[in-house]
Design a protein around this nucleic acid. Sequence first.
DNA 1: TTTATCTATTGGTCTTACCAATAATAGATT
DNA 2: AATCTATTATTGGTAAGACCAATAGATAAA
Lengths: 249, 249
Amino acid sequence: MTTAKNKKFKPINNESSSNISQEVVSRLRDMIHRGEIKAGDKLPPERDLAKLLNVSRPTLRAGIRSLVAIGVLQSKQGAGTFVVNNEGPPSLDGNQLRLLASLRGFTNSEMFEARLALEMSVAGLAAERATSDQLASLAEELAGIFGSIDEPEQFLVHDMNFHQLVAAASGNRILTSLMNMVATILFDVRSKTVKRARDLKESAEMHRIIYRAIRDRKVEDARNAMREHLLNAQAAQAKEMEIGENGKK
Amino acid sequence: MTTAKNKKFKPINNESSSNISQEVVSRLRDMIHRGEIKAGDKLPPERDLAKLLNVSRPTLRAGIRSLVAIGVLQSKQGAGTFVVNNEGPPSLDGNQLRLLASLRGFTNSEMFEARLALEMSVAGLAAERATSDQLASLAEELAGIFGSIDEPEQFLVHDMNFHQLVAAASGNRILTSLMNMVATILFDVRSKTVKRARDLKESAEMHRIIYRAIRDRKVEDARNAMREHLLNAQAAQAKEMEIGENGKK
DNA sequence: TTTATCTATTGGTCTTACCAATAATAGATT
DNA sequence: AATCTATTATTGGTAAGACCAATAGATAAA
């Protein structure tokens, strides 16, 4: 253990009104903001870090646990605690929005409007920016969509994958993260209703139109195609829910 | 303490691969999803709940801490632990996105594009839906904007408030929540640069145009006005940062 | 009835001990 | 020398017990 690397962890003297474990959170958060701790870094072992910060180990754990919960840190028994890595798509935990949805009961219009805002934008940006690799992946997922027209649940998975690839092709990580968050509540709802889907062929066709607009670099066409698709998807889902309610009588 | 109310908390027999505190999280989360625990509910005291779930109190605290970190529960020393309340604007914790921004270094374009997607949509929806109370609040904030043209930091506060009111007037809680999340990183950046702002009068004027479009129910005008404002804001901010860099030489 | 004080409740912090998963090290085999 | 296996050390996870600090509720006094 190199003490030089640990010099940056200074004792906490809690003189503010908040509790000590919240100070631990603030301290680590500020160090991340200031770049003193970077993506992928391993924190000192809990016992050591607790000593360095002059708090008890359970108090330190409480702070670490908070940061783990929001996805900034990862703890691994036997290995250590790490700042999440830079690799791969950025990810915001969808649980927060999901629980908010449960507590609040977001309406279908709210979800549709949120999708419209986000997904029209990413479609337009994807038409500007998609790489040939990304276009190839989109084409593959499109094939998957057409290949699962008779299997609604499989269709849904390909559908979600297609939308994620469009977001990735937009090159905007904030929009991608927000879209993925909204996708978690959407998946919750749709996985319950999709087995009653009736006309997935039309939906598949719309994905093809989106793909072609992106491939051909037609920004407004991509935006409009995504809009039409989302309108159609909302109508289809409303029908799926209606069938569900009639099916109960 | 009524034992009837506590019947729903059943012991955890951990047979899955995840650790026990994560099971606590899952259990409470599922109960919220299923409506067995509702907004505003008080959970049993930690000592009692730990016994009911057949885990130690520190383990229960770890689970609760996670849910507190994502904003679903609130713990208050001497009072108890509560499910967050239904009242007031929905709120997603901005810290996750903020730390992601620090770890990843979101570009100004990414932020601008995200704002464009979200704020054009809420402006259009606000033009459809704003109540007269909301319009009155917007007018007040507009007055605040015009009244602080010579005080950039105060201007920024009114500017942010105006945008939040537009979001509230959209009547879409998902978009409002997402926008507020993005606003936290934006505020971080802008509070550092705004003191170097030069021509806030033009910005104030653009807020007026947005307000009028919303008041007059002109959806496309509201969208376009917001777009122009954001374009102008991005150019202004780029200039603020440029002045900052030149100011260092 | 209202206000002040006291007590009980409940979350926050700490110490100590032990368990469980992972990583590192040592020894045996090829 | 390289590879595999077993053992040990490290590090996060869980538990028990004690005590502190903040809040809420009960009681007493004005």
